[in-house]
């Protein structure tokens, strides 16, 4: 089936009723809605590990153009993550996801360091204490940003896959986890937004990773959520916080329910 608006082929079994290429409703062609494009956006990946999944726009950057492919991949991974990760290949060469994550991740990481340094400098100019060592480390890290992003991709994959294995959700191998981490890492570009961008980006990446793990490993949302949040739980101990809240809220709920009877 092709989209009535843009003419792009629509992958079979698409959960949403919108075209993954142009985002318009499949059932409601717009008046004069765009000339059909001969070049398909989604194409079956026939390489090793393709497994009948469609590729991402970035996989087709040589046909679509660098900027268009980069933008569509970022947009799809942020706005339609379920369809995006469902269409992602879970195997094959690493160069496509790694190059995408390196470009956007490095920009985001560099921007994050820039804002951190600027805030530290601003605090010093406002009369606060400037931590020279802290600023020195920021400056020292900037040239190593691509290397640090690359290391982060691999270390992040190892941690995420370990916890996915712990919860019994690792069905498609570490290649699938690695690709989810890479494609989701592009959202780190939000670090370029001053002050709140880092926090928004971090939450958005977590959400994308949960959906990506679920779709790439064909596992449940609960297992994917557990795999992504368990490393944070181990670090921040919020399992215990949830336990404490449950210990307060459950008796309160039970006594309220008894009072209502």
């Amino acid at each position: 089936m092709n989209c009535p608006n843009c003419g792009q082929p629509v992958p079979e079994g698409l959960a949403e009723s919108r075209c993954p290429a142009c985002g318009r409703p499949l059932s409601e062609p717009l008046p004069g809605g765009g000339a059909p494009v001969a070049e398909p956006v989604f194409e079956r990946v026939t390489g090793p590990g393709g497994g009948g999944r469609s590729g991402t726009p970035w996989d087709r950057r040589s046909d679509m153009g660098f900027i268009t492919a980069l933008w569509r991949t970022l947009r799809d991974s942020m706005v339609r993550p379920a369809d995006f990760f469902r269409s992602m290949a879970v195997g094959g060469p690493q160069c496509s996801p790694v190059s995408y994550a390196l470009i956007l991740g490095t920009i985001g990481f560099g921007a994050g360091l820039f804002w951190q340094g600027l805030i530290a400098l601003g605090m010093g100019m406002a009369g606060g204490e400037v931590n020279r060592q802290e600023m020195g480390i920021y400056l020292l890290l900037v040239p190593f940003a691509p290397l640090l992003v690359l290391m982060g991709l691999y270390v992040g994959t190892a941690i995420l896959h370990f916890f996915l294995w712990i919860v019994g959700g690792a069905r498609n191998g570490i290649g699938a986890t690695f690709r989810v981490v890479c494609w989701a890492n592009g959202i780190q570009i939000l670090n370029a937004i001053p002050f709140c961008g880092g926090l928004i980006g971090a939450v958005w990446v977590l959400v994308a990773e949960v959906i990506g793990i679920r779709e790439a490993h064909e596992t449940t949302t609960g297992r994917a959520l557990a795999a992504v949040l368990l490393p944070l739980a181990v670090c921040c101990g919020f399992v215990a916080i949830i336990g404490i809240l449950a210990a307060i809220l459950i008796p309160a709920y039970v006594s309220a329910a008894k009072g209502g009877l």
Partner: peptide, 27 residues
């Protein structure tokens, strides 16, 4: 192990060594 995973495991090994050594060096 699935096809194409070997470079990922190698990458994890190299990144793991670099992360541990780098963190200790910075500290």
């Amino acid at each position: 192990m699935q096809a194409g995973e070997s470079p990922i495991w190698r990458g994890i090994g190299a990144a793991g060594m670099a992360s541990i050594a780098g963190a200790l060096l910075v500290l």
